[in-house]
Write a protein that binds this DNA or RNA. Structure first.
Lengths: 191, 191
DNA sequence: GGAGCAAGTTAACGATGACTAACATTCCAG
DNA sequence: CTGGAATGTTAGTCATCGTTAACTTGCTCC
C-alpha cells in the first residue's frame, strides 16, 4: 500500500487549498481533507501538527513564493526602464493568479485564521512584496506620495486577483492580456 | 428594559456584518452576535429564523441595494454620453465600498454559505448589476466582445472592492479619487 | 387590571469536529 | 529475521455551537 507517494505533504496541501478556496477554512473538516487525498481523517496528523499548522504552511508558502518572484523580477538583469520592471511584475503576478486561483483565494481570505505569530511573518512577506511594486512605481511617479503608491498597488492586486471570481469566460491568454492592459493603464494614470 | 430599540433587526444585521467581515461566517457564533448587541445568545431567534437566514438577508440586502443603485445611476436623467453614466456608476460603487467596507467583504466572501435557493437569487441580482456596467461599457467599446467586457467589469469590481484591504492609509476622499482615476483608466484601455 | 404579545433569560439536546490513543501494516537496515 | 520507523486505521474524548424548550417580564389595549 505504498504507491509512489509523490510526497504526501504536497498532495495534502494541494487538496486542502482547493477545499479551503471552495468552502473556507472553517467550512472544511480534517476528515474532508483526508478524504480528498484518499486517506481518512486523523492520518493527516502524521504530516501536520494540526489544521491551523496546515493553513499556516500554505500561506507562508504562497507569500514566500510571491516575494521571491517579486524580488527576482523587479531587479531583473538590466532594468533599463522602470516600465520593463513593472511589466515583469505584472506578468509574473498574472501568471501566478491564473495558474493558482485557489491559492490566491485562500491567501486573500484566510489570513485571520492563522495564529498570531505566523500571521505576522506572512504579513511581513506580503509587505515586502508590495514594497517591490511601490519601489518600481516610485520610479515612474517620482512626486507621488508613498501612501498613494501603496494604495494603488493594493488596488491593482485587487484587480489582478479578481481572476477566481470571473472564471472561464475568457481563455487564459486573453484574460492575461486583458488584466495586463487594464492594470498597466490604471497604474500609469495615478497623478 | 425597552430602550428605544431603534429596530433590533437592523442593529443585529450591522453587528453581524462587522463580525462576519472580521472572522468569517463560520468563525462567528450566534452567542458572539448576541453579545455584540447586548443580548445573549438565543435571543436572536426572536428576529431571525437562524444563522443562515441572517446571512441570507444580509447578502440579499446588499445585492438589492447595489442593483437598485446601478439601475438608477446607469439610466441617469439625461446620459448624453456613456462616459457620464460610467462616471456615475464608478462614483456610486466607490462611495458604497468606502462607506460599508464590511458589507463589501461579506458579499465577496460568504456567498457559499447561503442556502442554494437564496444563493441563486443573490447571484441574479449581482448579474443584473454587472449587466448595467456591461451595457455602459458596450456603448464605449462597440466592437469589444461581451465576454471581454464582462471580465473587465469584474476586474474593476476587484479593484474597487480592494478598499477593505488597504484601510486608512489615505483619506476617504483621496482614496475615492484614486480609485476613480485608476478604474476609469483601466476601463478606457480595453481594446 | 388582566389578557396577550414581544422580547429576553437560562438550561438542555444533538451534531459536528478537532484531536488523541491504541492498535495494524509495510518497508527497509543491520 | 527482526526491530523500528513511517504511515495508516478505528474508536473515543472533549469542546463548541446551532437550535429548541420552558419560563419570565414589561407594554399595550380593551
Amino acid at each position: 500500500m505504498k504507491t509512489p507517494t509523490r510526497n504526501r505533504r504536497a498532495e495534502i496541501l494541494d487538496a486542502a487549498a482547493a477545499l479551503f478556496a471552495a468552502r473556507g477554512f472553517h467550512g472544511v473538516s480534517i476528515e474532508d481533507i483526508g478524504a480528498a487525498v484518499g486517506v481518512s481523517g486523523p492520518a493527516l496528523y502524521r504530516h501536520f501538527s494540526g489544521k491551523e499548522a496546515l493553513l499556516t504552511e500554505m500561506l507562508l508558502g504562497i507569500s514566500e513564493r510571491l516575494r521571491e518572484q517579486g524580488a527576482r523580477l523587479a531587479t531583473t538583469a538590466d532594468p533599463d526602464t522602470a516600465e520593463a520592471a513593472l511589466d515583469a511584475l505584472l506578468a509574473g503576478h498574472i501568471e501566478f493568479a491564473l495558474r493558482h486561483p485557489a491559492l490566491i483565494r485562500v491567501q486573500e481570505r484566510e489570513l485571520d485564521n492563522v495564529p498570531e505569530q505566523a500571521r505576522r511573518a506572512i504579513r511581513r512577506l506580503q509587505r515586502l512584496y508590495a514594497e517591490e511594486w511601490v519601489a518600481v512605481l516610485a520610479e515612474l511617479h517620482p512626486d507621488c506620495p508613498q501612501a498613494r503608491l501603496r494604495a494603488a498597488a493594493h488596488a491593482v492586486f485587487g484587480l489582478l486577483n479578481s481572476t477566481p471570481h470571473s472564471a472561464g469566460e475568457l481563455s487564459p491568454e486573453a484574460m492575461a492580456g486583458l488584466l495586463h492592459t487594464m492594470a498597466r493603464a490604471a497604474l500609469c494614470q495615478i497623478a
